Computed example of a mutant assay.
Amino acid sequence: MSVRRTLPQKERSLIGAWCFCDHYGPDDVNMDVAPHPHTGLQTVSWLFTGEIEHRDSLGVHAYVRPGELNLMTGGSGICHSEVSTPSSSVLHGVQLWLALPDAHRDAPRDFQHHVPPTVSVSGCAVRVFLGTLAGSTSPVRTFTPLLGAEVVLPAGSRVEFEVSPSFEHGVLLDTGDVSVEETVLSPGSLGYVGTGRSTLTLSSREGARVVLLGGEPFGEEIVMWWNFVGRTHDEIAAFREEWQAEGERFGRVQGYPGDRLPAPALPGGRLRPRGNPA
Results as ranks from 00 to 15, higher is better:
H114L: 06
D259F: 00
L133R: 05
D28V: 12
S45H: 15
V151Q: 08
G251V: 15
S179G: 02
L213W: 08
L261W: 00
E246A: 15
G194I: 03
T49Y: 01
V83G: 01
S138W: 12
V44H: 07
L153I: 07
S179R: 08
G131T: 06
L202H: 04
D259W: 00
E241Q: 15
P37N: 09
S122G: 05
S84Y: 03
L146G: 00
R231D: 01
P35C: 02
T39I: 10
G50T: 12
L130F: 06
E168V: 03
L202W: 05
G207P: 04
P8Q: 01
G50K: 08
T183D: 09
G247K: 07
G135P: 12
R4D: 14
V128L: 04
M31K: 11
P8E: 02
D22M: 03
D28A: 11
N70G: 02
P101E: 04
P257L: 01
G123P: 11
F129T: 01
H61G: 00
E182G: 09
D56R: 14
R12S: 01
T49Q: 14
E246T: 08
G219A: 08
A265F: 04
P273Y: 11
V163I: 15
A107R: 11
A62I: 09
P8S: 05
G93M: 13
E242A: 13
V128M: 03
R127N: 12
Q244M: 11
R240I: 08
P117D: 12
A107M: 11
P108W: 05
V152T: 15
L153T: 05
E51V: 11
I222T: 13
M1E: 08
L200Q: 07
V152W: 02
I236Q: 03
P262I: 10
N227V: 10
A245P: 06
L58W: 09
V64S: 02
V126P: 05
W225K: 04
G16H: 13
V64E: 10
A107T: 15
R109F: 08
G207I: 03
L147P: 03
E246W: 02
T183R: 09
G16Y: 14
L98W: 13
W226S: 14
D22V: 02
L190I: 06
E162N: 07
A278F: 14
V178C: 12
T73A: 07
A99Q: 03
G191N: 11
I78N: 01
W97V: 03
L146R: 08
S189D: 06
G131F: 14
C124H: 09
L7M: 11
S2G: 00
P116Y: 10
S81L: 04
L153E: 07
F250G: 13
F20Y: 14
T201V: 15
P273H: 07
R274Q: 10
R209W: 04
